[in-house]
Nucleic acid binder design. Structure first.
Ligand code: FES
Ligand code: FES
Lengths: 134, 134
DNA sequence: TAATACTCTACTAATTTGGTAGGATAATAA
DNA sequence: TTATTATCCTACCAAATTAGTAGAGTATTA
């Protein structure tokens, strides 16, 4: 399951995609329109900026904009930025790989099975973009 | 991510599949062979029995056996029994559906996107069986 | 009737999730 | 230059979930 945080992130990005290209949008506007708790959204958008998904501008007339065209931002990259791994096991993760202590990867049936699952899931998630979230 | 519990469940089932068909296998043997904490495995196997994935027999010569041929037990059904939903959003779950309060499903882009993700993931997970975990 | 092996409920500690609080910092404009 | 606006950042907190453990109960068999 996606965390609530990731769901908020995707909703916020969808909202920004709907206004792309255009001037900065303030957190308060996104929070209100998408019914996301303001302070929570602050931390979320900050994380998305640090993941190079958003650009920010401070002060009057400031706010957030997408770092690039919505079509160039995959849903997969957003989930990774907020929730971390997409795979169902650490030992099959592409971006968050972690070896299994008690298990030899080359002979592990679980590893094989969940590699296939990962490939199917990620194929879809990499193709879907923030443009699809408008 | 799968919980540790689900991972243990799949490993235990893989072990039982390797001995299928055959007499009952005791929890202690599975725990030792697969390096799973005994008392934890007890609760896991109990859940699998309640989900009609395992059969149990008490007393001397007792233990657990698969309820049916390993090829007839999908990995998806095991995950559902232990971790619950496979989908990334409650509102796209087939077996654990939960409506989104703040969101109209018929016009929701998140819903559309994660329905596609669910379909791709589940297609693989329904095809994989405990036979593949030997 | 004693030994074996699953059954069941309840409990606990550690981690993660879903936030909130409050001040710091940067940009703009009067 | 100072007030205002809006993001930045760290730290904190409560509730939920996860990963087990404890211990007594029940059924089966020899
Ligand atoms: S489960 Fe990760 S290598 Fe076996
Ligand atoms: S996110 Fe569930 S219906 Fe929109």
């Amino acid at each position: 399951m996606l965390s609530n945080k990731a769901k908020y992130a995707l909703r916020a990005l969808g909202y920004l995609a709907g206004k792309y290209p255009g001037g900065p949008v303030q957190i308060a506007e996104i929070a209100e329109q998408q019914k996301i708790p303001l302070k929570f959204l602050e931390t979320i958008l900050l994380e998305l900026r640090k993941a190079d998904i958003l650009l920010s501008k401070k002060g009057k007339g400031g706010g957030y904009t997408l770092e690039r065209d919505p079509k160039q931002i995959s849903v997969a990259s957003v989930i990774r930025a907020i929730d971390g791994p997409i795979s169902m096991l650490p030992c099959v993760s592409l971006y968050f790989y972690k070896k299994c202590d008690d298990c030899d990867e080359t002979h592990c049936s679980l590893n094989r099975v969940f590699t296939d699952v990962r490939d199917a899931t990620i194929k879809v998630l990499e193709k879907k973009t923030v443009r699809d979230l408008i």
